Amino acid sequence: MIDRRLRVLRAIEQHRTVTAAAEVCRLTPSAVSHQMQALSRELGVVLLEPVGRGVRLTAAARSLLEHGDVLAAQWERARADLAAHRSGEVRGTLRFCAFSTAAAAVVPQALQRLRREHPALRLHLRENEPARSFDLLAAEDTDIAVVVATPSIPPVSDEAFEQEELYSEPLDLLVGPEHPAVGRDDVALSELAGEPWIGSTPGRAYHQLVVLACTSAGFAPQVAHYADEWDTGAALVARGFGVALVPRLAELPARHDTRRVPVGAPPVPIRRVIAAVRAGSREQPAIAAGLAAVREVCAALSTTLEGPG
């Protein structure tokens, strides 16, 4: 019931180019341009203006998005109200997306609870980077996103989404078996300023976390190798090619001989994990059940997160 062109306009605002917005919305760039031109004509206002190789929203377009957010949130609430008139068990489809660690350590347990408590509910999980997860939420391609809070995700003040913190997870130092830190109770991150580091592809959430943690400790990490999979990173660390930061919940392959050492001296690196839904949707029965299951799983993980590395 909400003009889908508003979602396309929202994607343009987020990604700054028609081409990137088209990819997110699964349209061609020409289709996006056509939709924006048609919407502009219908409303009688200019919505986009070119800036270099990209575009930016006009004041009229931003005003339109503000109204669109209100309408979208109200429609989600209407769906929740209508669900109250349907009797019987929770049913339908509930779609999750999550970053790698949560997709392994959190969401499958939540799905197991949901399958037991709501057998009529169809469940789906998609592993994704945090910023992409918000694109999926906006496009109604997912219902609950479990993501790491990074600078690349929408702020809490973004009225298109509702966000809640699930847990804060320490990042431990990962070293090889011959590293001088092995056997210590903890380390200060600043002690590793001169070490080669194993990072991930720039722009990914893990890369942002490592750079932020090291910068907060007073140095820029010297990234010697890039690895997007824990298997690759652990293999490099085990053989002395560098050190890395690893989240407390991340499961590392046993075949690589690595050691975890907690970071004890401030600033202790942590990552905040949040759940996000479309504004107004959290009271819909399936989404409410999914959020409750995720909260229960995260509460049960608190001992693991607070314990030694």
Rank of each mutant, 00 (worst) to 15 (best):
A38V: 11
I12S: 03
Y167T: 03
E229L: 14
T17L: 05
A139M: 15
A59C: 09
R271L: 15
D158E: 12
G307V: 03
Q163E: 09
R122L: 09
P155K: 10
D231K: 12
R113A: 13
W75T: 14
W230I: 07
E76P: 07
E191A: 02
S30C: 04
R126L: 11
V277Q: 03
A224F: 15
A120H: 11
T304N: 07
I270T: 15
R10P: 01
E178G: 07
V156P: 01
G307K: 07
G309M: 04
L123G: 03
Q112G: 14
L125K: 05
H256Y: 15
S133Y: 02
E306A: 14
A11K: 01
S40G: 10
V32S: 04
A289K: 03
E76L: 06
A83C: 12
A234G: 11
I144M: 10
S216H: 07
T303H: 09
R282S: 15
V211R: 10
E296F: 03
L245T: 07
A265L: 10
Q35R: 15
H256R: 11
R278E: 07
R239V: 01
S216C: 05
R282M: 12
A238D: 12
G240I: 02
L71G: 00
V18G: 00
H118A: 14
D257I: 01
V55Y: 00
G52I: 05
L82G: 13
P130D: 06
R79L: 15
Y226W: 03
R248Y: 14
P269S: 08
D69V: 00
V146Y: 04
S281G: 07
A105S: 12
